[in-house]
Amino acid sequence: MLGTLNGALEVRGIRLDPEDISAEAEGIMRLRDRMPVLEEIIVHYRLRVPAEARETVDRALASHGAKCPTARSLEGAIKVTWTAKVEETPSPS
């Protein structure tokens, strides 16, 4: 999902350095018939973006999951959700 989000941002003219975009995935396992089964994946994004790009970043975040091959492949079997901590950086003078 990180690659899909990064691609969506680049298409919109927002190029982030590797230290400005990262993700951590959390898997939620539950017992079914005494067997642990992966039921949910939560992707936690951390982004540092120029303040003037915030609205564009929010739109890319809102739509990237529907365009992610991995998320679409898991659809119906494993719930995939995301959170985002977005830090705005000041525009260069």
Rank of each mutant, 00 (worst) to 15 (best):
V57A: 05
E40N: 03
L38C: 10
G27A: 04
A62N: 09
N6R: 10
P36W: 01
R32K: 01
V57Y: 04
V57H: 08
T56R: 11
Y45K: 05
I14C: 08
P36Y: 00
T56L: 12
S63C: 12
P92M: 10
A60I: 10
R59N: 09
D33I: 02
R32P: 02
K79T: 11
A62S: 14
P50T: 00
V49H: 03
L5D: 03
D17A: 10
M29A: 02
P90C: 03
A66N: 13
T4G: 01
I42N: 08
R12Q: 06
V49M: 02
D33E: 10
R32M: 03
E40H: 11
L2G: 01
A51M: 11
K79G: 12
A23C: 08
K85N: 15
I21F: 08
I21Y: 01
E26Y: 04
A60K: 04
V49C: 07
V80H: 06
I41Q: 01
V80D: 07
L2P: 00
M1C: 10
L2F: 04
D20Q: 07
V86H: 07
E88I: 06
E26A: 09
R30N: 06
A66Q: 15
R32V: 15
L5A: 04
A25G: 06
E39H: 04
S91K: 14
A77I: 09
G3A: 07
L5F: 05
A66E: 15
R46F: 11
A71I: 04
G65Q: 08
P69G: 04
A77G: 09
E55I: 01
D17K: 15
I28T: 04
L61Y: 05
V43M: 08
G27P: 02
M1R: 01
E52N: 12
A8S: 10
G3P: 03
H64P: 07
A8L: 11
I41D: 01
E87S: 10
S93R: 14
G65D: 08
P18D: 03
L16T: 00
C68A: 13
A51L: 11
T56Q: 13
D58G: 11
M35H: 04
E24Q: 12
V86S: 05
A77L: 07
I78S: 08
E40C: 03
